[in-house]
Simulated assay, not measured.
Amino acid sequence: MRRLGNTVAATVTLTALCAGGWLLHNGTATHAPPQPTAAEAGTGPGGPSGPGGPGGPRSASARGLAPSVPERIRIASIRVDAPLTGLGLTPTGTLEVPPARKKNLAGWYEAGTSPGETGTAIVAGHVDNADGPAVFFSLGALKKGAAIEVDRRDGTTAVFTVDAVEVYRVSAFPDETVYGAAPRPELRVITCGGTYSRATGYQSNVVVFAHLTGVR
């Protein structure tokens, strides 16, 4: 058993996000989503460890909020403004994914930490679907220091600051680095990326690491 957002859960993978139906029909040369550069990655072994990242110096962060259902995520720098739906685990222990046909929809792991609470909150969404780019198509272009806003049902908006943007191969996904418990309010935003294969889809996951820095 592994921890997912401070909640013990079965093994979690995100391969269902990564079919890449649009690329299957259009090829990879001109339609692939942007990928993070080395400058946006963490600086230590095993994952992000720069300022604010896991394993590195902690920058100032806002105090954790009470639990509340997140309703919307906004990332202005990459033009994301999307509703959130709750996600659970499938019978085989994998994370459910939002319906692929709804390209502007992201999901959060509702059995775990809600965004803004102390702990690790998980948000996931498709990079594309059969019709074209989906909600997190541009996630790999996100930069350190960018803001992520999550509107919550209690009327508050949790504001997160990006610490790092990483790419991990699906076959070597570091569960503990991404999903492990955190002593402050943190957020992971996950989609697919990396090399694309017509046989298996995307080969990697793009993971954004962020921590709470403000509340409105």
Rank of each mutant, 00 (worst) to 15 (best):
A10D: 09
A10M: 08
V12H: 07
V12M: 09
L14W: 06
L17P: 05
A19M: 10
G20D: 06
W22G: 00
W22A: 00
L24R: 13
G27C: 13
G27Q: 10
G27V: 12
T28M: 08
T28C: 09
A29G: 12
P36T: 14
T37Q: 13
T37I: 13
A39T: 13
A39H: 07
G44Y: 03
G44P: 00
P45N: 12
G52L: 05
G53T: 06
G55Q: 01
G64I: 08
G64P: 04
G64S: 09
L65V: 04
A66I: 05
V69F: 01
E71W: 10
R72V: 12
I73T: 14
A76R: 12
S77F: 04
V80W: 01
D81S: 06
T85C: 14
L89S: 11
T92W: 15
T94Y: 11
L95D: 14
V97K: 00
P98F: 08
P98E: 12
K102Y: 11
K102C: 09
K102L: 15
K103N: 00
L105Q: 11
Y109S: 10
G116W: 02
G119I: 05
G132V: 07
P133I: 11
P133Q: 10
F137M: 06
L139E: 07
A141C: 08
K144P: 06
K144D: 09
A146W: 02
A147M: 13
A147C: 08
E149L: 09
T156A: 02
A158T: 03
T161K: 10
T161W: 01
V165G: 02
V165Q: 01
V170N: 05
A172K: 04
A172I: 02
F173C: 07
D175H: 14
Y179E: 11
A182Y: 02
A182M: 11
R184N: 06
E186R: 10
I190T: 03
I190W: 01
I190A: 03
C192N: 06
C192V: 05
G201V: 01
S204D: 14
N205T: 08
A210I: 07
H211I: 04
T213C: 10
T213P: 03
